[in-house]
């Protein structure tokens, strides 16, 4: 395995450092599906809903949800953010962990910081308590860009979220500005 230069930002996010040419040569790469470490849980769902203060009974009431097309409580449609978001620490990160990073970070580029810009999510099937989630991502584009906070690249990545039955539940496309902080 090639050992690449990495830099870590104050939150613990690791960036693989390389040239613009290297980064652009990665466009179109698609990773193998990776299963999330834990199945979806009611606790994770309710904690997520706390953040948006959503009292929709679909997320809170089994009795109500049984009367809907879903037949049981569902996770809110934005729950896909719980998958693929970076964790601060994992025991298997004690050594090399480039493979754990999203293309936003592991595409070799000069940038060592991220700023979220555009976001698009498509929803097809909800997740429920106990569902296992498999995610694979694709590097869609790398475009040079200069903004007020620095110079860098717009990095666009697609993520596909499937349940244990292989159903596509969500797809998202996220564009971040990956820039260099001196």
């Amino acid at each position: 395995m090639t050992v690449r230069k990495t830099e870590t930002d104050p939150s613990g996010v690791v960036y693989v450092i390389g040239t613009e040419e290297e980064g652009m040569s990665w466009i179109g790469q698609e990773a193998e599906p990776v299963e999330e470490a834990y199945p979806m849980t009611t606790r994770a769902i309710e904690h997520f809903v706390e953040g948006i203060e959503d009292s929709n009974p679909l997320y809170w009431s089994e009795e109500f949800s049984r009367q809907t097309r879903w037949g049981k409580r569902i996770a809110p449609w934005g729950i896909e953010v719980l998958c693929k978001e970076h964790k601060v620490w994992r025991p298997d990160w004690m050594g090399e962990h480039e493979g754990q990073l999203t293309y936003h970070c592991r595409t070799p580029l000069p940038g060592n910081r991220l700023l979220g810009l555009d976001y698009e999510v498509e929803c097809y099937k909800p997740l429920h308590h106990g569902d296992r989630v498999f995610v694979n991502e694709k590097l869609v584009d790398v475009v040079p860009k200069t903004m007020r906070i620095g110079s860098g690249h717009l990095v666009t990545v697609d993520n596909f979220f499937r349940n244990q039955h292989g159903d596509l539940c969500f797809k998202n496309r996220r564009t971040v500005f990956r820039y260099r902080q001196a």
């Binding site: 104050p10 939150s11 904690h47 706390e50 953040g51 953010v81 970076h86």
Partner: peptide, 16 residues
């Protein structure tokens, strides 16, 4: 802080 926790988003620009 609640949102950083509930969304697993600990990018420091959201809490520091």
């Amino acid at each position: 802080l609640t949102i950083a926790s509930s969304h697993h988003d600990w990018y420091p620009g959201h809490h520091d």
